[in-house]
């Protein structure tokens, strides 16, 4: 179905605004950048109970001990 030109232009402006905010959010230097980051974050954050990306494996990851990694690399540990 053909899309109404007016609606299409509105969508284009909205999408361009979203990209501009993402760009400023990535700079994260000036007050405006930080405001954009806050807005982008707020718009994309779900309540924890609905957050489909919460995952114990990732959220509880403590990383590695550098000395342990050294020993592992030398084949001293499993």
């Amino acid at each position: 179905m053909s899309i109404d030109e007016k609606l299409l232009r509105k969508r284009e402006r909205s999408a361009a605004l979203m990209m501009w905010m993402a760009k400023r959010s990535s700079y994260n230097k000036s007050l405006l950048d930080k405001a954009c980051r806050w807005a982008v974050n707020r718009a994309t954050t779900l309540p924890p109970e609905e957050d489909f990306l919460r995952d114990p494996l990732i959220d509880n990851d403590q990383g590695f001990d550098p000395d342990e990694l050294d020993r592992y690399q030398r084949g001293e540990t499993g």
């Binding site: 990535s26 982008v40 974050n41 990851d61 990383g63 001990d65 550098p66 000395d67 990694l69 050294d70």
Partner: peptide
Amino acid sequence: EKGRVVKIRSSDNPIFRD
């Protein structure tokens, strides 16, 4: 830490978060 990567975690940028 001590010249080694000890952890990989999510970006702090909300457009790449998680």
